[in-house]
């Protein structure tokens, strides 16, 4: 798979996760989101940015329950819950939001 952004071709694996994490840009994120049928809102960006920060700090994409707990802690229980996050990312916040955030698939996510 690949994405096209501003005339550049960005390689991705067969599931749509980009190969080189350094290829990521906000424009690319919008492009990946489009292919996932997601329109990026501020709420989506909040989660995507959170994931990028988490990865920057710990070098892993968190498992979904870890993500939910961490978001609950930093943004409060109204956002740190399954329902809210699955509404934003219907195919799974860890899986789908990680893809948009340009991160590898979370460890242990099949």
């Amino acid at each position: 798979m690949e994405y096209k952004v501003n005339g550049h071709t960005i390689p991705a694996d067969e599931e749509g996760y980009i190969i080189n994490l350094s290829d990521w840009s906000k424009e690319l994120a919008e492009e990946i989101a489009k292919s996932e049928n997601i329109e990026m809102t501020d709420e989506h960006w909040e989660v995507v940015n959170f994931l990028r920060d988490y990865y920057e700090e710990y070098q892993i994409a968190p498992a979904v329950r870890v993500l939910i707990k961490a978001i609950k802690k930093s943004m409060g229980p109204e956002k740190g819950n399954n329902k809210y996050l699955y509404e934003l990312f219907p195919y799974g916040p860890a899986k789908q939001a990680c893809k948009i955030a340009g991160l590898p698939k979370p460890t242990g996510c099949v």
Partner: peptide
């Protein structure tokens, strides 16, 4: 190669 030492600090979350 990937520096995975920061990942030990995430273990508490797990």
């Amino acid at each position: 190669v990937k520096n995975f030492s920061p990942t030990f600090r995430a273990l508490g979350d797990y």
